[in-house]
Structures are given as structure tokens and as C-alpha cells.
Write a protein that binds this DNA or RNA. Structure first.
Lengths: 225, 225
DNA sequence: GGTAGTTGTGAAATACTTATGAAAAGGTAC
DNA sequence: GTACCTTTTCATAAGTATTTCACAACTACC
């Protein structure tokens, strides 16, 4: 299972279906939007890892969308255009486009480009960069959490749970979801295990431990205060 | 001044001239070859940072050249093809092509793609010969480590592990990652082997050996103190 | 306020990971 | 082929993480 969400933005339902089919078959989570405005709203809700956007669209074209997207995020973009359509590739790359494809394309090309862009974007940016949530700084590659500039020593599971919650503050995760994400889909642990790890996390995080909130009957979330 | 050498391989003198003009104007050192065989000979002599290669060429086509090049080097490749020429983009990317362009192209596009490929390829590569981490000076070419100005005698594997860890201080590497990076992807060793080498490294580095930290459940990292 | 269901907690049991010394296997130079 | 060095394997000890369990504490709902 690939943990990547891809947002495909195109006004033609046929094209969206086509792209979705190929990507879904390859294990990606695929979301759709019909125009730039729709897409921007969804970006904030879905936090996709990649946007594939048609250059020619009504209301807001691909470039305008890209500009707006890059203004506030680092989400990579692949532009789509129909053969013969006049548009400026250099301009697209300058705006921050990471790649482009000309329709019609082969499924293999789509997959190859998506993989290439994701690899580039998330190896050196997202993953290698630490992110901050309130007083916490979490660095995935260094496997390190600091709280007010002091390193907090966490075990693998504790780190995994905290990282998961912290990547989407406010979002609630069920214990089962946490198990799937941190342990893997084939885990054989029970929900009580999560409770115990949450207990330890709260303890180790001291005052900041209260950021991890219990959502009664559902699971846990991390709320920035 | 850009310290990059680019080798352009095309059987048409006109196209070579064109590309050379654009790139030279932008500060690159440009070399030319007329076919795949000629190019391979020059690669070893000139050690270029990038090859731009026409797909359709006599004697040895672009793909054959690329295969041979990637067999022995990591030099990135941009493929050139004429509009309408039948060739397989996916095949090109699979062979290890880093990008491709369709003739005719605008100078701006050429520059943008060259810069993009060079940035990607050389960001994380060994640009300098020796580097310093805390009390250690590591010289890749001389295969030499000094600790407080005293040479430390390391075996090949020990050196490889230390160099790997030291190039990204703070970053955690799993034993498997270390094996892939130092031994190569087709290694057949076990994780315990790494443990033993780490033991020896710590011993040989004396006090500085404590820079190599165990990250429980994951692997090892080098932390500068 | 009672009750059923859910979560928190401490302690114990279990499972797993790493360090280490010694020995075997593999290479290389002479 | 021998001597010497490197690399790998192995067994065991030491250490740490993870899970389970029992019960207490809490929450929602009637």
C-alpha cells in the first residue's frame, strides 16, 4: 500500500477516470477535482502529496492554480496538456511545475513520472525536513523528537504514533488506524497496546503530553494548543 | 562560473552547434561527440556531468549508448528526439534517462531542463573530496580518516560505514541501508555483520567512537557532539 | 444515580534487539 | 602454500521494548 494521496484536477470526467484507474491500480489514493477553485478547497482538506493538473481549464487555469498552490505549500505538480495546445513549458517549470505530460500518454509513462516526482520531492524535502507542531520538532530521518529544544527519547513505536498524530494535527485516528500505519497492515496487536503507548508518550512529553487528546469512543488525536 | 561539463551527442553538426551555443552562453563547458562510440570514449576522458543525447543516431542509438553509460557510471542523461519520431519515452526513462526534450525546443526550455537535472543529480553527490565532522576529517579519494590530526587505520568496510554515517550526521541508517550503500544492492550479508563492524569502528575511534550512536530498533547514526 | 462500555495505569511477562568475544571463512601478497 | 589481514558468522549475555493483564477510573446515556 502506497501512502501517497494524489489529487487529479481536470474538467473532463473521462480523463479523470483514466488517470484515477491507472494510479489506483498502482496503489495510490486518488482524489479528484473539476477545476482550480474546487481543487484548492480540496488541497487543504486532503493534504495530497502530488497534484496532477490540466493546463487548460475553465475559471482558473492550471498555471493560476499552480501559482496559488506553490504560494502556500510545497506540494509538487505535474501539468497535463493536450497535444497541440499552445502553452509555455518553461513558464510551467518556472512557476514550480515538477514535470509535465502531453495527452495522450501511456499508462507506463504516467506511473514513471509520478514515481519520479514523488521520489524527488519526498526524499529530499518533506521527509528529510523536520516539522514543527507546537513545542515539538519531529525529524523523521534523524528519528528524533525535541520538546522546547530538549531531545525526548522515544522508542520506535512511540515515535511512530507521535509522528502519525503530529503530521495531521486535529485529525482523529482510531486505534486500528494507528496500528495499520505504525505496525503495518498485518499487525496482530490489540487496541489496549495503543493505550499503553499513549500513556508512556504522555508521560515522556510531560506538560506537552496533554496535546494528545482522547476522543472518546473513537481514538486519539493531537491538538495544537 | 559553472563548473559543469556537458557532453552533447548528436550526428547533426547543426544541432550540436545550436545546443553548444545556448549552453556555453550560460557558462557551461560543452563537449561534442558525433555518435555513441565516440561519446563513450570521450566520457572516460572528459568525465562530463551530463550527457545530452539524440535518440536516433547511426551505429549506436541513444538507448544503446545510455545503457552502456549507466552500466558503469551515474552520469545523468537527457534524451533528444525530433517531433514525430517514434520512440518509447517509458523505455527511455526506465533505462535511466533523467529527462527528454522534443526538437525543436526553445533555448529557455533547454536551460531549465539542464539546470533541473544537474541540481537533482549533484545535490547529494560527492562534490568535495574531504569533509570534516567534529574531530574527524574524511577524505574519500585518499580513503583516509584522521582524528585530531592522527591517521586512523580503517579497512574498506569500516571506512565505508563511517563515511556513510558521517555524510549525514544525525540521520539514522538501518543496517539494510548501510549494506546497500556500502556493500551494494546485491550484498548477501546479514545485519549482525554491521554490528561487528560498528564495534570495531568504536574501538578504533576511541573516545570519538561514542559519536556513533545506536538507535534502538532501527540502526545507527553519527551524532556530532 | 445506575449501568454498560471505554480508557488509564502499574506491574509482570514476553518478545525482541544489540554487544561482544571468539572462531571460521575469505582474500591477498609474497 | 604460508602468513597475515579482513570480513563474516555464531553463540551467548546483557539490555531494552512491547505486550498483556487486572483493576481502577472515567464517560455517556438512560
Amino acid at each position: 500500500m502506497k501512502p501517497y494521496t494524489i489529487l487529479i484536477i481536470d474538467d473532463e470526467p473521462q480523463m479523470r477516470n483514466l488517470v484515477r484507474t491507472f494510479l489506483a491500480k498502482d496503489g495510490y489514493i486518488v482524489e479528484e477535482a473539476t477545476d482550480g477553485m474546487d481543487a484548492l478547497a480540496k488541497v487543504y482538506k486532503l493534504q495530497p502529496h502530488l497534484c496532477i493538473v490540466d493546463v487548460m481549464m475553465p475559471y482558473m487555469n492550471g498555471f493560476e492554480f499552480a501559482k496559488e498552490l506553490k504560494r502556500t505549500t510545497n506540494i509538487p505538480i505535474i501539468f497535463l496538456s493536450a497535444r497541440g495546445e499552445e502553452w509555455d513549458k518553461v513558464e510551467g517549470l518556472k512557476i514550480g511545475g515538477d514535470d509535465y505530460m502531453v495527452k495522450p500518454f501511456m499508462p507506463g509513462e504516467l506511473i514513471a513520472r509520478v514515481e519520479s516526482v514523488l521520489r524527488r520531492s519526498y526524499q529530499h524535502r518533506y521527509l528529510s525536513q523536520s516539522f514543527t507542531v507546537g513545542p515539538l520538532v519531529i525529524d523523521h530521518l534523524a528519528h528524533k523528537v525535541t520538546l522546547d529544544n530538549n531531545t525526548v527519547s522515544l522508542t520506535v513505536k512511540e515515535f511512530g504514533i507521535l509522528e502519525t498524530l503530529a503530521r495531521k494535527p486535529g485529525r482523529v485516528y482510531t486505534r486500528e488506524q494507528i496500528l495499520n500505519l505504525v505496525w503495518g497492515d498485518d499487525h496482530k496487536s490489540t487496541d489496549r497496546t495503543i493505550d499503553t503507548h499513549i500513556k508512556t508518550l504522555r508521560l515522556k512529553l510531560g506538560e506537552a503530553g496533554s496535546m494528545i487528546e482522547t476522543v472518546w469512543g473513537i481514538g486519539y488525536k493531537l491538538e495544537v494548543k
